[in-house]
């Protein structure tokens, strides 16, 4: 047996984009392969070895009873369990069904709904097992993934920022799209990691990296409403890739409840 750390990659309900970030590390991949032993990575290699693993990278959310069981086994087999991306960390875009139930979605999407067996909710890995580190993003940033792997190899904490996207905007010299163009942007409450990509192209932040440290949602949504944005629209903006992340969920629920109350008042 090799003395190198054994790395495994697992997929749950997801689009595979985060795993692909590992492969798109092109330049660094060979160096990485020289330091870890990739023993389970269905997307990249037919080598499939059973546990134990030193590091498990887990992509995707839990949406089936089978997966509920499978993640328990992954946890038992792995020393470090790292979740990759919005699905694994917050339930992903598929967590939208948590508000409306599975049945409607299943009937709308599948030709034979009777073939589908699914849970009522899409939930984060941490709702099922202990997670050692959550890497955010939809998809993750490959350099942050590299930083996490390097830190594990070096035995230190990963240096991934928990502050908001605005910091990255300002460092790269982007002109704030909210202030200069009146575009709604979730950057002030979203964790950095993408390098403030969208504002650099005159788009507001969509919140791909989920809530930042201590996000102050209420003044932001108050300000958007004062600027004319409807509570419904703000709730919709919060309910995307990280809809079920607690801070975003709480604020979108608060806004949705207000809308519902307004509609029910004659």
């Amino acid at each position: 047996m090799s003395a190198q750390p054994r790395l495994a990659v697992f997929k749950f309900a997801s689009c595979d984009g985060c795993q692909l970030s590992l492969l798109s590390l092109e330049d660094e991949l060979l160096q990485l392969a020289a330091r870890v032993d990739v023993v389970h990575f269905l997307e990249a290699t037919s080598r499939i070895e059973p546990g134990p693993y030193d590091v498990a990278l887990v992509e995707g959310s839990i949406t089936t009873a089978d997966d509920e069981q499978r993640i328990q086994q992954v946890r038992r087999d792995s020393k470090f369990l790292v979740t990759l991306g919005a699905c694994a960390t917050a339930g992903g875009i598929q967590a939208l069904k948590n508000w409306s139930g599975s049945e409607a979605f299943v009937n709308a999407v599948y030709a034979r709904p009777d073939y589908i067996r699914t849970l009522e909710t899409s939930t984060a890995i941490a709702d099922h097992v202990a997670v050692d580190f959550e890497l955010r993003g939809c998809p993750i940033n490959k350099y942050q993934l590299l930083e996490v792997l390097q830190s594990l190899l070096a035995g230190r904490r990963p240096r991934t920022p928990t502050h908001c996207v605005c910091v990255e905007c300002k460092r790269r010299g982007t002109v704030c799209v909210t202030v200069a163009q009146g575009i709604a942007c979730l950057g002030p409450v979203t964790q950095a990691g993408c390098g403030a990509l969208c504002p650099a192209y005159d788009r507001g932040c969509y919140g791909c990296y989920g809530p930042s440290e201590q996000p102050n949602l209420v003044p932001l949504t108050d300000h958007l409403r004062a600027g004319g944005m409807k509570a419904e629209a703000i709730a919709t903006a919060l309910r995307s890739f990280n809809a079920y992340a607690p801070a975003f969920r709480q604020e979108s629920d608060r806004l949705a409840a207000e809308v519902a109350e307004r509609e029910s008042t004659p």
Binding site: C166, K170, C176, G187, P188, Q214
Partner: peptide, 22 residues
Amino acid sequence: RRCLSCTNCTLVCPTCFCHSVT
């Protein structure tokens, strides 16, 4: 209650000098 703690004021300020080293 109004502040987002978003850092924009400090990063646009021409005198603010805070930085971190890693």
